[in-house]
Design a binder for these strands. Structure first.
Length: 456
RNA sequence: UCCCCAGUAGCUCAGUCGGCAGAGCAAGUGGCUGUUAACCACUGGGUCCGCGGUUCAAGUCCGUGCUGGGGAGCCA
C-alpha cells in the first residue's frame, strides 16, 4: 500500500477504506478499551488521530508507546464520532517503528524558545518550529516564482571571494594555511594565492550579470564576522539580491515594494494553517500588520524628510537627530511603529554614511540609496541605484580608501557598456521574522550561527 | 564590544530578614473515562551555573568567571 501524507488525507477530507500513514506520536491518551494516538508526519501542522482498539494483537505494546515514538499505521479512515476532528483512523495494524525513551526532551507542553534553542536538532519536531520551517520553504519557492514571473534570471555568485571590503562588514577568512599571523601572512602561499574570505554580499558579481542578462537575482548564504549580539543578526544568513539594468532608484523602490507584497500575499494564500498558528500564539496583531503591508502603498520619504519628521516629533530620543547622522534604531521604530504604522522607504541618504557604489545625486551631498524599514524588525531591505559613471565611481572609491586595482574587473563594467542600474539586498530571515511575528532571528534559521555558537 | 536582567528537579518557576530544598507540569506505578495539552491517586527525582570570599550558618550577602535573555552599536 502506498503511504499517504497526513496533509493529503486531511485536504481530501473524505473517508477511505484503507490508508497507510507513517509518522511520530505527538501524544497518547489511553483507556482500557482503546487508545488514542495523535500522529504527525511533518507534512502539515495538524495531527491525525488514530484509534487503536484493545482487540489489536499487539495492544500490550501499543499502550507502551511514548511521546515522539515512530509508528506505521494501516486502517480505515472514518468520520470521527468524537469532537475536535472530522476524520480519524480506525487502526487495523499499528507497526511500532521506534519506541522513544522516556527522557525525550520534548514534552506535551509549551517550551520556551530559549530552551528549544539548546536542542536545535529536535525543535523542528514541535508545532511552532515545524510551521516556521514549512513557511521558510514556501517563501523560498515564492521568491523564485516572483522573479521568474518578472523575467529575472537566477544567478549563483561565489561563496568564496577575493574582493575585500565590499563595505558590508567584517569578513570570515578562508585559508588552507596551517599557521597564520594576524598581519604579515604570506597569502601568496595560500590556496588562491591571495587573501580569500566568505562573501558578505553577491552584489558586485550580480551587477556584472545584470549588465548582460538584464534582470538577475541571487538567493544564497551570506557571512558576516561582526560581533553582533542582537535578535536581528546572525553570522550566517540568507540574502536575496536582485540587480536590474536600465533601472533607476524609483523603479528599484517599486520592485522592492512589489516583492514584499507578493511574498506576503503568497504566504496568506498558501500557508494559512501555519500562519494562523502564529497569529494565534505568537503575535495577535500579525494579520493586521500583514494586511497593512499588502493593502496600501509604502510611504516613501527622503532622508531629509525623515530627519525633519523626527525633529518635529518632540520625542525624546537617546540619540540626537541631525542631518548627516544615520538613523538609529529608535528613530526607525518611531517612523514605522508610531508615525506611519507601516512600512516606510527612506531614500537619498548623505553620501558620507553610505558605501562607494551608491550613485551620487546631483546635489553632490546625497546618494541614491534606499532602505525599507518595517515595524518591529527595522531595516528589511537596503538598496541603491549604482554609480555607473566611471570617473565618479573612481573618486568615490578613492575617498573610501580602496585600492582601485583590486576592483579592476568591477571598474571595467563602467568602462564598457555602462548603464544606469539598481538593486537591493533583502535579509531572508528578517522577512520570515516579519511574516511570522517571531522576534529572534535564531528561531527562523535551522541551526543559527552567532558569536560563540557553532553547535549542531 | 558596551549597558541592564537572569541562572534552583527533565521543563516552567516560587523560595520572606542569612536558619531543614518547594510547587505545577513531565516521568514511573495504579485507577477511570470516545479521549482532545485528558482526568484522579501514589512514587521517584537536586553539583540551588562554576570558582573564591564574608559568616556559627549562604540558594539568599560580596567578588569573579561562564551561559542565556533584553537593549545599543555594526547591518540584512
Amino acid at each position: 500500500m502506498k503511504r499517504e501524507k497526513i496533509k493529503q488525507i486531511l485536504d481530501k477530507n473524505s473517508p477511505m477504506d484503507s490508508v497507510l500513514v507513517k509518522g511520530w506520536v505527538r501524544t497518547k491518551r489511553e483507556s482500557k478499551e482503546f487508545t488514542f494516538l495523535e500522529i504527525n508526519d511533518g507534512s502539515c501542522l495538524k495531527n491525525i488521530q488514530v484509534v487503536s482498539d484493545h482487540t489489536l494483537e499487539n495492544y500490550d505494546d501499543i499502550i507502551k508507546i511514548t511521546t515522539g515514538s515512530a509508528v506505521s499505521i494501516t486502517g480505515k479512515l472514518v468520520v470521527s464520532p468524537g469532537k475536535g476532528q472530522s476524520l480519524e483512523i480506525q487502526a487495523e495494524n499499528v507497526d511500532i517503528v521506534f519506541i522513544n525513551p522516556e527522557n525525550y526532551p520534548l514534552q506535551k507542553k509549551r517550551h520556551t524558545d530559549e530552551f528549544l534553542r539548546t536542542i536545535a536538532h529536535l525543535r523542528p519536531r514541535t508545532n511552532k518550529y515545524g510551521a516556521v520551517f514549512r513557511i521558510r520553504s514556501e517563501l523560498s519557492y515564492a521568491i523564485h516564482q516572483f522573479f521568474k514571473n518578472m523575467g529575472f534570471f537566477y544567478i549563483h555568485t561565489p561563496i568564496i571571494t577575493g574582493s575585500d571590503c565590499e563595505g558590508a562588514g567584517e569578513l570570515f577568512r578562508v585559508t588552507t594555511l596551517k599557521n597564520i599571523s594576524d598581519e604579515k601572512t604570506d597569502f601568496y602561499k595560500d590556496f588562491f594565492g591571495k587573501e580569500a574570505s566568505l562573501t558578505v554580499s553577491g552584489q558586485l558579481s550580480a551587477e556584472m550579470y545584470a549588465l548582460s542578462l538584464g534582470d538577475v537575482y541571487t538567493f544564497g548564504p551570506t557571512f558576516r564576522a561582526e560581533n553582533s549580539n542582537t535578535s536581528r543578526h546572525a553570522a550566517e544568513f540568507w540574502m536575496i539580491e536582485p540587480e536590474m539594468a536600465f533601472c533607476d532608484i524609483e523603479e528599484n523602490m517599486g520592485v522592492a515594494e512589489k516583492f514584499i507584497q507578493y511574498i506576503i500575499q503568497y504566504t496568506i494564500d498558501n500557508c494559512k494553517p501555519d500562519l494562523d498558528m502564529f497569529c494565534k500564539f505568537v503575535d495577535k496583531e500579525l494579520m493586521t500588520t500583514l494586511d497593512s503591508v499588502i493593502s496600501r502603498d509604502f510611504k516613501r520619504l527622503t532622508y531629509k524628510e525623515a530627519i525633519d519628521i523626527l525633529i518635529k516629533s518632540g520625542e525624546k530620543f537617546d540619540y540626537g537627530v541631525s542631518f548627516g547622522n544615520d538613523l538609529q534604531s529608535e528613530h526607525e521604530r518611531y517612523l514605522t511603529d508610531i508615525y506611519y504604522k507601516g512600512p516606510v522607504i527612506v531614500y537619498n541618504y548623505p553620501k558620507t554614511i553610505k558605501p562607494f557604489y551608491m550613485r551620487l545625486n546631483d546635489d553632490n551631498k546625497t546618494v541614491a540609496a534606499m532602505d525599507i524599514l518595517v515595524p518591529r524588525i527595522g531595516e528589511l531591505i537596503g538598496g541603491s541605484q549604482r554609480e555607473e559613471r566611471l570617473d565618479v565611481l573612481k573618486s568615490r572609491m578613492q575617498e573610501s580608501g580602496l585600492n582601485l586595482s583590486d576592483y579592476w574587473w568591477y571598474l571595467e563594467s563602467r568602462t564598457y557598456g555602462s548603464v544606469p542600474h539598481s538593486g537591493f539586498g533583502l535579509g531572508f530571515e528578517r522577512l520570515i521574522m516579519f511574516i511570522t511575528g517571531i522576534t529572534n532571528i535564531r528561531d527562523v534559521i535551522s541551526f543559527p550561527r552567532t558569536p560563540g555558537n557553532i553547535d549542531f
